[in-house]
């Protein structure tokens, strides 16, 4: 895999097929965690890290369990169990080992497990039959894409707080429309030929 392949794959994942604004996965956490810049960055980083780990696990289980035993029909259950179980174990260990985590953080497993972007990235990399390196790069770049999108959206929302919006559109409706317009801007990247 040459450098230009890596670059084009990551550019596709970040811009042309942005996980949130292009493929519409993980919209709920995208809208819920973008109220402030701080929570947006937090969500972006945690989703990126989870995606990276989860894509590796998805590749390994696909090649070692699902393909040899022909468990295609069990794929969803296996992947969901990996995500939810892994997060629960991580959380339990972190809570036990560090008092800081137990007291301060609000991140709970359901916060990431109920995120279609995480399950989506596992299914996309496996379905597209990507090799190990490509799937890791694609997942990481998708995480970066999520972070970029949520930071842009959070900064727009901060401005929205001070703008004069019709009463019926205040809050959720204008947030949805703004997200749609940002998605429109991102769809401009689809015309660029990265390959």
């Amino acid at each position: 895999m040459s450098f230009s392949d890596i670059l084009s794959l990551s550019l596709i994942a970040i811009f042309a097929e942005n996980i949130v604004l292009g493929q519409m996965l993980g919209i709920t956490p995208f809208l819920k965690n973008s109220q402030s810049m701080k929570s947006a960055v937090k969500a972006g980083v945690s989703v990126t890290l989870t995606m990276l780990v989860v894509a590796i696990l998805a590749y390994v289980t696909e090649k070692s369990i699902i393909m040899p035993f022909r468990l295609d029909y069990m794929r969803t259950v296996i992947f969901v169990t990996i995500v939810a179980g892994g997060l629960c174990i991580c959380e339990a260990i972190l809570r036990k080992k560090s008092s800081y985590f137990a007291e301060k953080t609000e991140i709970s497993p359901s916060y990431i497990a109920v995120n279609t972007a995480v399950l989506g990235i596992m299914l996309i990399t496996v379905n597209a039959n990507l090799d190990f390196l490509s799937s890791v790069i694609y997942a990481f770049a998708s995480g970066i894409g999520f972070t970029v999108a949520i930071i842009i959206f959070a900064s727009v929302r901060e401005r929205l707080e001070y703008s004069d919006v019709p009463k019926a559109f205040e809050g959720v409706p204008i947030a949805l429309i703004t997200a749609g317009l940002i998605a429109l801007a991102f769809s401009g990247f689809q015309g660029i030929k990265f390959m």
């Binding site: 959380e91 339990a92 809570r95 137990a102 709970s108 359901s110 916060y111």
Partner: peptide, 9 residues
């Protein structure tokens, strides 16, 4: 619900 999934440790 964030609190509900906290582990009882």
């Amino acid at each position: 619900n964030k609190k509900r999934f906290s582990f009882k440790f």
